[in-house]
Design a protein around this nucleic acid. Structure first.
Length: 880
RNA sequence: AGGCGGGUAGCUCAGUUGGGAGAGCAUCGGCCUUACAAGCCGAGGGUCGCAGGUUCAAGCCCUGUUCCGCCUACCA
């Protein structure tokens, strides 16, 4: 083995091995308990970013862990057709060739998108493989697959027949660049510095004018009323009055409506039902005409008079100039307000009147909400449940039609003869109303999220009754980012409850965002993006994955930096070297029992095995509760600071020793522990663990299918924990003194141990050689109650004392300083405790065991203090 | 406007039902001790955002306050 771990080839080799040996494959039927995660399908257009890396690392940890625990695991992979995003990509390619989709035609265009998908759609899948993801690739799905499309049509038809889907004219969010309607969720609000324009609307048949305040003067051509509050003293007696719209001088009525806020602006509100959602509502109440003045390209139409053909912003600018000239602009004040932008292309949204398809979401949300309230689905961390409820309880209807070409075309056919709408799973031959044959399919496609809402059951074969559905639905866990809690999780809950009659997943784990080292969101424009693939190339997948896991504290964003990754690469390398050491020392050893040798358990053996049991338990518990950082931290601490720092160092005694029986036994234990460590770590760092695993004697198959360590696999010896800590304490005590006294590590010292009782004495006597080796000690004598030796420096451990004989080696002044420091600390401690014990309230109200604990502590501390004072006095007399 | 999350060591963060504040990294000192200098041994470092309150006891519970971040919302 090399002295440093090199990830490159190793990763490729083992990934191939796992796939070739079908280790990722799930069984449609099995006696083993099922465990299933559906991947949040990445966009086909996507490239692996940090969010994906974190998200999928977590899923892989869960899946590998459960697989090793014996579950029949299905990690269902696939990609999303990402309507708008994908269409944009192909349109861009067309634009580069000087043409566009309209020139190409719908059919040909869709063909081109499929071709693009075939060519580039696999990119992100391959990137997931580099991350080590153990998805069952034989089951990969795509939202535009025939099967999933069938599910989409089935759902649409049923929702329509049940009255959940309707079509109608409403104000929707229109993206003039993407040329499509968007759902409310797909609009991002951004604070913009604009103006509040105060504009004079002259009265038609009398003098004077009303002043309206608006941020969007260009819509005034579509005004069909001006509303004021009936309680507003300024505007009494205007019933039946009309005002003239500026420039075009069209007369519109003044109406009274309580909706108008008297304190805002001038208290007079222009009403544009075709371009504002609130105005639309008011317009409905007052039966106002809806006049569109901005077209689908955000260009002013013929109703905008002289501004016809201008872009909406250009029109605003020109109009304001003109109003200034004609004296109709009262004033304009700077005004900060939230303006909607398209979440795909960031273009400013135009609220526009349009005929679209909607889902009545209320009743569906109710069931979805209930499922979480009843605890059928649990959301981790559970504060997200509140967010979920808040959304679900205030849900609005969902606009599902999109005016693009790439997507699931709505299965509705309009009869050109009678105008009837025919909604059907397949194209009907005749109109259901008039029997005519002149049918034309709806040109709109469905919102991409419509099909992803079905993902947990459509990927398992629904609407057919498959074994997969029976085995894996409801799925076990969903791992995702909070940014798509509403977009995706909420909608899967709604669809799952409605169509499967059951929750889509038992647990939802919501993870945080990966940010840069300063805590800033990574973005291309800021240039602070860390590319996961670059990280993998430079540091290896394992280091990267372990970093993500170690930093993934629930509810907190991850601040990722190269430094951290390097730190965990050191850890991977540490494991590598520990394994190297073990392999150098165990040879081809099998098991002792098989060869008829006796197994011995030294104190370090008993200790490390007991600790291993506890750690194994802790790791599984942490993974089950999605505390990835705790799980990683436990492994890190145990492997590095217990196994490497203490256990291996102590095991060298047997491994390097001459006693063949002890040596063989020790080899077995060392191997046993190493194997368990590799298994514990495998879900986090799959590649290096497999690489080492395959080098271990006796390995016959992949670590992927080895059994995950459990507490019951190892001895539970509480005495070993206590005994070992005594030994560790004395060694640390000696090292401490050496460090503070600046005694070179190569310089051996002699010590005297003053023991308090025979129990400790026996433990020490049995482990003298460890003290010698690990603390750099030569001669040891054990006494009881003897005076402190000359020229010695002392340290306490438990009730015992160790004296280092340092004649001619130490600086007395230094030692006095050290002692005084120790005394100060212990006196402070005793002070606090005594204050408690002197407090009547504490003695009376605190639990008895707590009080007793403090009493014992004071006793022990006082004893130590005495000894420290004694030692200090000793030095003072020597110096004097 | 409402809601949520967070302020703990220089940095990043743990801190499970209230019972003497921890880790990793960084810093400093000493070591090439035959797995590992991507290493080993040791050390320093905190008024737990601020102010009150409850309690025998508060990083933890309550109230107020301030700063940062995020989400939701139709105030033109």
């Amino acid at each position: 083995m090399e002295s440093a771990y090199e990830p490159g080839e190793v990763e490729e080799k083992w990934y191939k091995y796992w796939v070739e040996n079908n280790l990722f494959k799930a069984k449609a039927r099995s006696d083993n308990d099922p465990y299933c995660i559906v991947i949040p399908p990445p966009n086909v257009t996507g490239n692996l970013h940090m969010g994906h890396a974190l998200n999928n690392t977590m899923q892989d940890i869960l899946c590998r862990h459960k697989r090793m625990k014996g579950y029949n695991v299905l990690w269902q992979p696939g990609t999303d057709h990402a309507g708008i995003a994908t269409q944009n990509v192909v349109e861009k390619a067309l634009a580069a060739k000087g043409t566009d989709r309209h020139e190409v035609g719908r059919e040909k265009f869709i063909e081109m998108v499929w071709e693009w998908r075939k060519k580039y759609g696999g990119v992100i899948i391959n990137q997931l493989k580099r991350l080590g993801c153990s998805c069952d690739w034989s089951r990969e799905r795509f939202t535009m697959d025939e099967g999933l499309s069938k599910a989409v049509r089935e759902v649409f038809v049923r929702l329509y027949e049940e009255g959940f889907i309707y079509r109608g004219d409403y104000i929707i969010n229109w993206c003039p660049r993407c040329h499509t309607a968007l759902a409310d969720l797909e609009v991002e609000h951004e604070e913009i510095e604009g103006f509040l324009y105060h504009i004079r609307y002259r009265f038609e048949n009398r003098d004077g004018y009303l002043i309206v305040a608006t941020t969007r003067p260009e819509t005034l051509f579509g005004d069909t009323a001006v509303a004021v509050n009936p309680d507003d003293d300024r505007y009494t007696g205007l019933s039946g009055a009309k005002v003239l719209l500026p420039v075009i001088n069209k007369a519109v009525p003044v109406i009274y409506d309580k909706y108008v806020d008297t304190k805002f602006g001038t208290g007079a509100l222009k009403i544009t039902p075709a371009h504002d959602p609130n105005d639309f509502e008011i317009g409905n109440i007052h039966k106002l005409e809806r006049i569109k003045v901005i077209d689908e390209n955000a260009i002013m139409n013929e109703l905008a008079g002289p501004y016809r053909g201008m872009d909406r912003f250009e029109c605003r600018k020109k109009l304001i100039e003109d109003l200034k000239e004609t004296g109709l602009l009262e004033k304009m004040e700077p005004y900060l307000h939230a303006v909607g932008h398209c979440y795909r292309c960031k273009t400013m949204i135009e609220p526009i009147l349009s005929k679209q398809w909607f889902i009545k979401a209320g009743p569906l949300a109710e069931k979805a909400s209930q499922a979480v309230r009843e605890g059928k689905t649990r959301i981790f961390p559970n504060n997200w449940e509140k967010v979920y409820f808040q959304w679900m309880d205030n849900i609005k209807d969902w606009c599902i039609s999109r005016q693009i070409w790439w997507g699931h075309r709505i299965p509705a056919w309009y009869c050109k003869d009678c105008g009837a709408i025919n909604v059907a799973r397949e194209k009907p031959k005749t109109c259901s109303k008039c029997r005519g044959c002149n049918l034309e399919q709806e040109t709109d496609v469905l919102d991409t999220w419509f099909s992803s809402a079905l993902w947990p059951f459509s990927t398992l074969g629904w609407p057919d009754a498959t074994d997969e559905l029976k085995t894996f639905y409801p799925t076990s866990a969903l791992v995702t980012g909070f940014d798509i809690l509403f977009f995706w999780v909420a909608r899967m809950m709604m669809m799952g409850m409605h169509f499967m009659g059951d929750i889509p997943f038992r647990d939802v784990y919501i993870h945080a965002l990966v940010r840069d080292a300063e805590g800033k969101k990574m973005s291309k424009s800021k240039g602070n993006v860390i590319d996961p693939l670059e990280v993998i190339d430079r540091f290896g997948t394992d280091s990267f994955r372990f970093t993500l896991a170690a930093l993934a504290a629930q509810g907190r964003d991850i601040k990722l930096s190269e430094e951290r990754i390097i730190g965990y690469r050191h850890f991977v390398n540490k494991i590598w070297n520990a394994a190297r050491f073990v392999l150098m020392n165990v040879g081809d050893e099998g098991t002792v029992e098989a060869e008829g040798y006796k197994r011995y358990y030294t104190l370090p053996d008993r200790w490390v095995l007991t600790r291993l049991g506890r750690v194994s338990e802790g790791v599984s518990a942490a993974i089950d509760e999605y505390r990835f950082n705790d799980a990683a931290g436990l492994c890190y601490q145990f492997v590095w600071h217990e196994f490497c720092d203490w256990y291996l160092e102590m095991a060298k005694q047997e491994l390097y020793g001459k006693d063949e029986d002890l040596k063989r036994s020790s080899r077995v234990t060392v191997l046993e522990v190493l194997r368990a460590i590799l298994k514990l770590l495998h879900p986090f760092i799959p590649f290096v663990t497999e690489e080492i695993w395959q080098k271990l004697p006796g390995t016959t198959s992949s670590i992927m299918i080895a059994e995950f360590p459990e507490a019951s696999d190892f001895m539970k010896d509480e005495d070993a924990i206590k005994e070992m800590s005594l030994i560790m304490e004395v060694i640390t005590g000696i090292r401490n003194i050496r460090g503070e006294m600046n005694i070179s590590p190569s310089r051996r010292v002699n010590i005297v141990i003053d023991v308090a009782d025979t129990k400790d004495e026996n433990i020490l006597k049995n482990n003298l050689s460890h003290i010698r080796t690990l603390a750099g000690v030569d001669e040891i004598s054990i006494v009881s109650g003897a005076p402190k030796p000359d020229a010695s420096v002392s340290s306490m451990f438990g009730q015992n004392q160790v004296h280092l004989l340092l004649k001619g080696l130490i600086d007395f002044q230094e030692e006095k300083k050290r002692l005084k420091k120790a005394i100060k600390k212990i006196e402070k401690d005793i002070g606090v405790s005594n204050k408690k014990l002197g407090n009547k309230g504490f003695l009376e109200k605190a639990p008895a065991d707590i009080v007793e604990e403090v009493r014992i502590k004071v006793q022990n501390q006082s004893l130590k203090l005495d000894k420290l004072y004694h030692n200090l006095q000793f030095f003072e007399t020597i110096i004097d």
